[in-house]
Design a protein around this nucleic acid. Structure first.
Lengths: 139, 139
DNA sequence: CTAAATGCAAAACCTTTGCCTCAAA
DNA sequence: TTTGAGGCAAAGGTTTTGCATTTAG
């Protein structure tokens, strides 16, 4: 197979017609490789390791742009900072209140129920935000 | 019936043994009378109408205290500000993305499902946050 | 070449805090 | 009286922005 099937954030960005600068390449790569849900400062720290010249202002500009294009999602876990992740299959977050660990999950029934509730109230669901906060049960 | 049945934020505060100052009385009354989900600045504006001497710092101190006592809830709708409401029967929020209006709802099935999901993942649900964002359907 | 992106520093916000004064209980 | 509360202003942390410079396309 050729390049036609290539996915990845960079390609989504190309499709959106934005300029790919060296800084954006690094920042986008950092986001793609992150398994956690980094805030802007974490993205900046990871990006600056690969390119000393990147400024945090550029990281702010970039995440704003990527979010507007819909290729990343902004998350909020209640501390004052925005966190980001590549947008992909839909999933929710469960935050372990003791460790701060964030566990992703998907639950079809929940998806359906949210849609249904909105419809029952006379609304078309365009977005939602759900976070569960839990404490690990003793087995 | 006598005073024994009195509810209200002030009484909850008295039960918690905090000092009821004139400023707190005003701020608490403002929260009780608010039908919306005001942020700190809105609470301050409404409170200062009744008592010019109230400072915004006192509003911050007070909402922090009330939240710790569990008599009000802190909400976040994605703009950078915390919003508050008197805590009562549990309910969720649906935000009309066109008007900004916030509609409260309660859905037993949803409550049960959240608990169930957490349990399935090996967690005891201690808190959660859910907001739906929707657009009004044409009838 | 030219519009768009970067970097820097300043500013804008929201929230917290130190400290002295004041008042509730 | 004594301890908690209030007010002010400064500081903290995150995010945005104006502007001169650089660069991708």
């Amino acid at each position: 197979m050729g390049d036609a099937m290539m996915a990845g954030l960079i390609n989504k960005c190309l499709k959106n017609g934005i300029r790919i600068t060296s800084q954006r390449e690094v920042i986008i790569e950092v986001i793609e490789e992150s398994e956690d849900h980094p805030d802007v400062n974490q993205l900046y720290q990871r990006a600056v390791e690969q390119d000393r010249t990147i400024s945090i202002a550029t990281v702010y500009w970039t995440v704003k742009l990527l979010e507007e294009m819909g290729v990343i999602d902004r998350l909020e876990f209640g501390d004052g900072r925005a966190r980001y992740e590549e947008s992909g299959e839909h999933h929710e977050h469960l935050v372990d209140v003791e460790t701060g660990e964030v566990i992703e999950f998907y639950h079809a029934k929940l998806e359906a129920l949210k849609q249904q509730i909105a419809r029952e109230m006379g609304y078309e669901l365009v977005d939602h935000r759900l976070e569960l906060f839990g404490r690990k049960l003793r087995p």
